[in-house]
Design a protein around this nucleic acid. Sequence first.
DNA 1: GCCCATAATTAGTCCGTACTTTAAAATTAT
DNA 2: ATAATTTTAAAGTACGGACTAATTATGGGC
Lengths: 238, 238
Amino acid sequence: MKNLYSQVCEDILGQIRAGELRVGERLPPEAEYAATLGISRSTLRMAFAELEEAGVLKRRKRAGTEIISDRPQRRFSMATSGVAELLSLGRDTEFSITSTRQVPTEEIPQLAGLSSETGHWLEVSGSRRMQGESRAFSVNRVYVPARFAAIEPVLHEGRRSVFQTIEETFDVRIGRVAQSVRAVACPAEDAKVIGLEPGAPALRIEAQLYLSDERLMEVSVATFHPERFQVHNDVKIK
Amino acid sequence: MKNLYSQVCEDILGQIRAGELRVGERLPPEAEYAATLGISRSTLRMAFAELEEAGVLKRRKRAGTEIISDRPQRRFSMATSGVAELLSLGRDTEFSITSTRQVPTEEIPQLAGLSSETGHWLEVSGSRRMQGESRAFSVNRVYVPARFAAIEPVLHEGRRSVFQTIEETFDVRIGRVAQSVRAVACPAEDAKVIGLEPGAPALRIEAQLYLSDERLMEVSVATFHPERFQVHNDVKIK
DNA sequence: GCCCATAATTAGTCCGTACTTTAAAATTAT
DNA sequence: ATAATTTTAAAGTACGGACTAATTATGGGC
């Protein structure tokens, strides 16, 4: 290995793989560890930074350096400039709500097993269109747990996304997004809205948005017009 | 602002927004710049690291620090552990080649305007299946520029992805992936292979793989069975 | 036993210096 | 001109020291 700190990374990774260090354990304090390794604290910190980046370590003031995974991850960074972009909603689109209602968990397959929240969710139905255009390119259904149901009146005030409204109203931040993309035959009810034949190919995106403490923030199910919308990712590899 | 280096970040960003610094320009050398700002080089380097992370700066030894964007990007990291995962090809799938041939640029719409490479590309046609299963879940066509066409004999030796073969054979690394996902009506020729009715909804993924120097490495067009394949992203937000 | 103030600990920030590596630029040779 | 070589400027690596801030742990009061 060329650099000292990369070498230190490898060593720590090796010890984890060999079982000498285990997930959940804490490493010694920086100063102490650097001394025993015979390197400077700054060099150790560079190694730690790399391992933290790779998802192996987690560092917190006073709490120390914890091993949280034995599998370093090659890092990809998405070339997007906000969560809205990540969710593939351009800046120049607007969301209009057609209806809201309370639904019990059992009625919506996408909610099954996701949360032990109280039985009812706020369902927000709507569609999204390019600014200025008249026809929508997607039909959206967003499910909000009871905890955030109070946003309902606020939603009607603007054309913002549901997640943005929640972020602002409750002063919380998205921490993670799990998203799946499939091709489906467009349901008849949605086909009318986006101008498709029933049964024609359409793109279905289901997303779960979580807060940084892993609590569920919203579940969203959207059906997109296949010619007027596509998911585009641009991913740099470290 | 709390930290000196975050403050420096803000300052630089502010100057970019104000037009005092422009995209394409280079910042002064670290030592010099730190001196004029009246801070230590390490502190400046922390600020630079943050701005590089955000996609605003690009640093290269001896070449200096260049401003490459005026829009800092909120950071997303994908929870994948390799490019294969990123391209949504699980570890436990295998690729089999059905045919290869030389094609001119004009015949393939996905190649239009992508590269000024010489007129011919190596087209590798194949399908991908889960390990052990008999029916494929995707039909793939991969286009390799003439520069890498020599991999053709190597391809038939194993069941590895084309990009992996290129990486190994030429000792190069992927630097960026641009990917788009759409819903399409499955073409008749592909429908047979993955067991779909012609015209049924299918997922189409088109990807361009670039090397770190931005030269094109491969273009791939794949059609997926909608029930047996979906794109899944799990994205942490900083 | 529980709550609150205090102390101790640990990662984070900041400084300054010295040396190394890379690659752009300049120079020389073909 | 073009190719090979040398120079050199810039980021990268590494060291060590000092101070800061956050948070866990401790101890005292009720």
